[in-house]
Design a protein around this nucleic acid. Structure first.
Lengths: 149, 149
DNA sequence: CTCGAATAGTTCAAATTCGAACATTGCTCG
DNA sequence: CGAGCAATGTTCGAATTTGAACTATTCGAG
């Protein structure tokens, strides 16, 4: 770690990494969003909701309007609702996933070998874990397939 | 590249990398934004504008309201305007930068050695360059300090 | 010089995000 | 049982982002 200056300023190396990291993440998300939007009419945020059947009120409402998701009261807990995919929602998802995956491979993982991918993932996982405030327990040092999500 | 399956589906490795990457970028930006906001009252987007004296109408208007930036007609080109930092703007910037740098080092670059930083930056630079649709000219294979910005 | 394309900045409306209430329901302890 | 606190979803308004006009200006070719 000969380079990590302990003075307050970031090194040129750190600055460069930060900029590349943050801009790359913006660019790839924007690109993905645009492609999903133009090719399927669905935004990235909505795709994510669809993918994970999340419960964010606003986005679910949008998806419900589009007929892709169906809301129903939860039988066991009257506070909750359950959101199902409709048939149309499943079909939509089938269109979304390949676009997503194509973009990821085209721009992020395409030229990386397994070792590079693992190294990169390892850094990203550490950053994510740290940010989530989790204990640095590290079962499989690399893959972290989905983590708690 | 023994691992990069050429079938349509992402490998588990790719999926994990994508998730970690995108979530880590979200988390660190959110954290940074919150810290800047609570400690200085300025949002990350506004900090970026301040930092680069960008020209986004809305954000500049906000900064102008806050007295951090000053707008004036451009003498040479009547289409443009020039935005200066006010003294208050400079002081604000002096408060923002250390927070930004602390977060970057704390969560992203802190535990990385120079070689790891270079490797990561290299991947991020490639992704960014690709996404910007630039030719893959690669003068310095790593640092890309700021790129055209 | 003059027209048309390109560049800058602004404005506007629609979509989205964000946070602060709010309402409802579950659960636990006395 | 019943009060109090936690959890869940919704609603509301403010702030922001986004994209599509729109205006003004510059630049280059004829």
């Amino acid at each position: 770690m000969a380079d990590v200056g302990s003075d307050q300023c970031l090194t040129e190396r750190e600055r460069g990494l930060w900029l590349a990291f943050i801009e790359a993440s913006h660019l790839i998300e924007r690109l993905l969003d645009q492609r999903l939007r133009t090719e399927t009419g669905l935004a990235y945020a909505q795709y994510e909701v669809l993918l994970r059947l999340s419960r964010l009120t606003y986005q679910v409402t949008q998806l419900e309007k589009a007929g892709l998701v169906h809301r129903r009261n939860c039988p066991s807990d009257d506070r909750g609702v359950v959101a199902h995919l409709t048939a149309a929602g499943q079909r939509m998802l089938d269109k979304l996933v390949p676009i997503h995956e194509a973009v990821v491979r085209e721009y992020l993982t395409g030229t990386l070998g397994p070792a590079q991918m693992d190294a990169l993932a390892s850094v990203m996982c550490a950053t994510r874990r740290h940010l989530r405030g989790q204990a640095p327990a590290d079962p499989s040092p690399v893959s972290c397939p989905g983590e708690p999500v």
